[in-house]
């Protein structure tokens, strides 16, 4: 059962991500990337990392990819992308070499069989509890740093994308619109 699920998920994810990379259509790329992320959360469920799977679902699929989709509306991105590829051969040579190298590295016998487990899950606690126990004791400082990083990113995003947000178009007088007509269209 687990074998079947793993191979199903692996093949689907690989195919979907390949579509993402190869497709000339941004909409296809975005859709297949989001679908691949959903399936990756399935891999996490198989691995017993339930909480990580749900975080993947909520944050990656629900927020990050949806934000990309929202951004795509700014870019008139439903059409076909035209882009110039200098030397496809080189790309596939480099990509293929990376793949071979990584696979060889990972498939080689890892010298990690006697690595001691640093933070083993607490016996008897289910995955969210165990994650919480480790996250808020051993990884508290990184957690706080990540929180600050998210705050900074949020402020940066608002400042970058949200120019002229305090200006309400519905509250401008009609007379002002008529006199300044055409000036706003930059």
């Amino acid at each position: 059962m687990e074998t079947f699920a793993f191979y199903l998920f692996a093949i689907l994810i690989t195919g979907l991500f390949a579509v993402t990379v190869m497709s000339r259509n941004l909409l296809y790329a975005m859709t297949s990337l989001a679908a691949g992320m959903v399936l990756i959360s399935g891999l996490f469920f198989i691995l017993g990392a339930d909480f990580l799977g749900v975080v993947q679902l909520i944050v990656y699929v629900g927020a990050v990819m949806a934000l990309y989709a929202f951004g795509m509306m700014f870019f008139d991105a439903t059409g076909v992308i035209k882009e110039k590829n200098g030397s496809p051969f080189l790309v596939f040579l480099l990509g293929g070499m990376t793949a071979v190298l990584l696979v060889v590295i990972f498939a080689a016998p890892v010298i990690g069989h006697n690595v001691p487990s640093l933070y083993p899950p607490v016996a008897g606690a289910d995955n969210p509890h165990a994650v919480g126990l480790v996250l808020f004791t051993k990884y508290l400082v990184p957690f706080e740093v990540a929180a600050v990083m998210l705050l900074v990113a949020m402020i940066a995003g608002i400042i970058l994308a949200g120019k002229k947000m305090e200006r309400s178009i519905s509250k401008i007088d009609d007379s002002e619109l008529e006199t300044s007509g055409g000036k706003d269209d930059e």
Partner: peptide, 12 residues
């Protein structure tokens, strides 16, 4: 290996 393949797809 799956992770390596996915990573290579990203690199491509």
């Amino acid at each position: 290996v799956l992770s390596a393949i996915l990573f290579s797809i990203g690199v491509v």
